Amino acid sequence: MKRVLVNGAMGKMGQEVVKTVVEETEDLLVGACDMKGIGENIMDLLGLKGDRVTIYGDLTEAIQKTNPDVIIDFTIPEVVMNNIKTGLSHKVHMIVGTTGITEVDLKEIKDLAEANNVNALIVPNFAIGAVLMMEFSREAARYFKDVEIIELHHNQKIDAPSGTSIKTAELINRNMNNCENNGINEIERIKGARGGNKNGVNIHSVRLPGLVAHQEVIFGGEGQTLTIRHDSYSRKSFMPGVKLALKKITDINGLVYGLEKIL
């Protein structure tokens, strides 16, 4: 049984994680951290049965008071690296679903995890279907030389493009050695109309109320297209991946990037 602290516990994803840890795992929720509800009992706030779990406003204090084995972080890109550094430097394993982590950040996380002899699992998307969508896209890239990604999320998501789309572009690029400009001198009448470019793959971001998390990868070839799409209609879709990550976090070694590495 692992002692779990959820950081960002009062956010929409954080609340789902809290409920999942309490109701669907054998692990023990020992603490919650958020800027909302400081000092309150998150078990009462979410209508859960069990001993009191206090919400702390400071991650360092939360770690010192609750002595967790694992921190699950669903916060925001602006603070995620500070959270990771705090957790790893206190020798606590980190499971991170917050996006915005760069390749430079990953190198720093790897070094810090190794220095403190703990593990960090960084997951752009916890939905099993999304992981399969990325893997199928990677395989399809062997056979198509043209591809674009459209990612669609709720209008409260502050970063663009999504971590999932960036990860997908990276996976595609590993197999698409000829991913390059088609030679046409395009004219963007509105800057950004063709999306952003990651590893030679154009990514288009949509933010609208009513959406949760969706992505389609469109491959184009002569006389045909192939579309690989995944849709999360509820945040419950991410919880099987969270449970798997929690189960595997002590079995990995140092930094692991992507849920597919532990499937």
Rank of each mutant, 00 (worst) to 15 (best):
M1I: 10
L5M: 11
V6N: 00
V6D: 00
V6Q: 01
N7V: 13
G14Y: 05
G14A: 08
Q15P: 05
V18G: 06
V21L: 03
V22D: 03
E23G: 03
T25E: 05
L28W: 14
L28Q: 13
L29T: 05
D34R: 07
M35E: 14
I38Y: 01
N41T: 08
N41K: 05
L45H: 09
K49N: 14
V53R: 01
L59A: 02
L59H: 03
T60I: 12
K65A: 13
P68N: 10
D73M: 10
D73R: 06
D73P: 01
F74S: 10
T75M: 09
P77R: 06
V79R: 10
V80C: 04
K85G: 06
T86H: 01
G87T: 02
K91E: 11
I95R: 04
I95C: 08
G97V: 07
I101S: 04
T102P: 03
T102N: 02
E103G: 08
K107W: 01
E108D: 15
L112S: 03
E114T: 09
A115E: 14
N117C: 10
N119D: 09
A127W: 09
E135Y: 15
F136V: 14
A141D: 02
R142W: 14
Y143T: 07
K145R: 13
E148L: 10
H154D: 15
I158N: 13
P161E: 07
S162R: 05
S165N: 07
I166R: 02
I166G: 00
K167T: 06
N173K: 15
N175C: 02
M176L: 14
C179I: 15
N182D: 15
G183N: 02
I184L: 11
N185K: 13
E188G: 01
G192W: 03
N197D: 12
G200A: 05
H204W: 00
L211Y: 09
V212C: 10
A213D: 12
I218Y: 03
G223P: 00
G223I: 00
G223C: 01
T227S: 09
R229S: 14
H230K: 04
D231G: 05
K236N: 12
S237V: 13
P240F: 00
I252Q: 01
I252G: 03
V256E: 14
V256M: 11
Y257G: 11
K261I: 09
I262F: 05
